[in-house]
Simulated assay, not measured.
Amino acid sequence: MERLIQFFFPRRCSFCGKVGDDPCDECKKFIRFIQGKTCEKCGIPIGDFVYSLCPSCQRESFTFEKVLPVFYYEGIVRKGVHLFKYRGFYQNALTFSNLMANKIISSNVHIDIVIPVPISYERYLKRGYNHSYLLAKNISKTLKVPLLDALKRTQPTKPFYNLSREERRREIKNRIAFKKGYENIVKGKTVLLVDDIFTTGATADECSKVLLKSGANKVYVSVLAITKLSRG
Rank of each mutant, 00 (worst) to 15 (best):
V109T: 13
S61Y: 15
E122K: 15
E122L: 05
G80E: 00
R59D: 10
N92L: 04
T95Q: 06
I104T: 04
K126S: 13
Y129M: 03
L99A: 08
V67F: 11
P118N: 01
Y121D: 04
Y90M: 03
S106N: 11
R78Q: 06
R78W: 04
N92A: 01
G80M: 03
M100H: 06
I104N: 07
Y124D: 07
Y129W: 11
H131R: 13
Y90N: 12
Q58G: 15
I113Y: 05
Y73T: 12
N98G: 12
P116A: 00
A93Y: 09
K126A: 09
S61W: 09
Y90C: 14
D112F: 15
R123F: 11
E122M: 05
S120E: 08
P69W: 10
G88V: 04
V117T: 04
S106T: 13
C57P: 03
F71Y: 05
V70K: 14
N108L: 14
V67D: 15
H131I: 05
S107W: 05
H82Y: 13
M100W: 05
I113A: 02
F96E: 07
I115E: 01
F62H: 02
L68E: 08
C57E: 00
T63E: 12
L99E: 11
P118W: 03
V77T: 02
F64M: 14
H110W: 14
Y72S: 05
L68W: 09
F71W: 10
Y124V: 02
L68A: 09
C57D: 02
I113L: 02
T63C: 14
Y129I: 06
N98R: 08
V77K: 05
S56E: 12
T63G: 14
N92V: 09
V81D: 05
R87Y: 08
